[in-house]
Amino acid sequence: MVREVMTDEELWEQWKKTHREKDLLPLLERYEPFVNKQLAIFGQTNISPTLIKAKAQMNLIDAFKTYDPKQGVKLNTHVNWHMQKMKRFVTTHQNFARIPEPMVFRISEYTQAEDKLTHRLGRAPSIKELADELKWPLSHVERMQKVLRKDLSLPLYDLDPAQVQSSQWNMIQNMLPYELGDKEVKVFEAISKARKPLSDNALAKKLNMSPFEVRKSRLAIIDKVKQFGQIQ
């Protein structure tokens, strides 16, 4: 006797009852063409195909989680609606600007001065002390501190659960190394395993790299994390 093929809704009902991975897999396989369609549509942008596929898969799972058959809509219609989010994702991230090389040098210069003064003074230096050491205007030091607070803290140290769901961050951690260069992978792994934030100098010593190489790698990692669309 030939076994009848389950409908999309029946596969969804089966997974909804158990929420087990083995019941989710047939549903993901059934809807893989929907993910591949997004790759075909947006694969020519300057966003990595890996990121596009990951985002499409996340949209797909979100669609499964939010589907309500009582609304009288078929599952594939609901999935199609969720896939419309891909256009906004690509539009937002395809022109993501990398930090210019001169800015990387200035950040490296700043952090080295900060580490030097912290070691010398036994405390965090003031803005004026940093300005004197760097021979920068106070306004430049203040601006640099704002840049570092905004861009260099969350993605690499303590992520706020309100900003990134743990399951999404786990996916990023698993996939990110494939998008990074060798030095960037070394920095990312060292930061991920550290029990507390490490300065560029500490990482440089640990990894046998220069502080500038560490800072440049750190910025590249943040760039990639942002392209996943998780950090706003």
Rank of each mutant, 00 (worst) to 15 (best):
K135Y: 01
F89G: 01
L24M: 05
M86A: 09
L207M: 14
T50R: 15
F42R: 02
I61Q: 04
Q112C: 07
E142Y: 12
I47G: 03
V104T: 05
S167V: 12
P49I: 06
D68V: 10
L39W: 02
K17C: 14
E10C: 09
D160K: 11
E29K: 06
A113T: 02
S199F: 12
K17M: 09
M58L: 04
A97L: 10
K186Y: 10
M175C: 03
V164N: 07
Y67H: 11
L25G: 02
D132Y: 02
N174K: 05
M175D: 03
P69N: 01
T92A: 15
K74F: 13
R98Q: 14
E189D: 10
A220C: 15
D132S: 05
P26E: 15
V147D: 00
M58E: 14
W81Y: 07
I172W: 07
K22W: 07
P102A: 03
A204K: 00
Y178K: 07
P197N: 14
E213P: 00
P33Q: 15
D132F: 02
Q163E: 10
M144K: 00
K224G: 03
K16W: 09
D200G: 08
K65S: 08
Y67E: 11
L121H: 15
W136A: 12
H78Y: 08
F212R: 01
Q14F: 12
V141S: 01
R195T: 14
M6W: 04
L203C: 08
S48I: 00
Q173M: 13
A56I: 00
T77G: 08
V147Q: 01
L176K: 10
K85H: 14
K70W: 13
F42P: 02
P69D: 01
S108Q: 04
L11K: 05
G229I: 01
M103S: 06
N208A: 09
M175V: 11
H140A: 11
R143H: 06
L148G: 04
E32M: 14
Q14W: 09
M6H: 06
M144W: 01
R20W: 13
F42G: 02
R98L: 10
F105V: 02
M58P: 00
V79D: 00
I231G: 03
T45D: 05
E4Y: 05
R215N: 04
D160I: 04
R215F: 00
L180T: 02
R143S: 13
L24D: 03
N46M: 11
N76K: 13
I107L: 05
Q145N: 07
E10D: 11
R195D: 11
T91Q: 08
E109D: 15
T91W: 13
V5T: 10
A131Q: 03
R149T: 10
L51E: 03
H78E: 14
Q44H: 11
A131K: 03
Q163K: 14
E179T: 09
G72H: 05
A131Y: 02
H78R: 12
K193L: 15
V2Y: 05
F212L: 05
V187I: 05
K55H: 09
R215Q: 06
K74P: 04
K128F: 15
V225P: 00
D8Q: 05
T45I: 12
E114I: 01
R30K: 06
N208V: 14
A131M: 03
F212D: 00
K186D: 12
A204Y: 01
E133Y: 03
R106C: 00
K65T: 10
L176D: 11
I127H: 01
R20H: 04
E114T: 03
L51T: 02
L180D: 03
L39P: 01
A194C: 09
H119N: 07
Q112I: 08
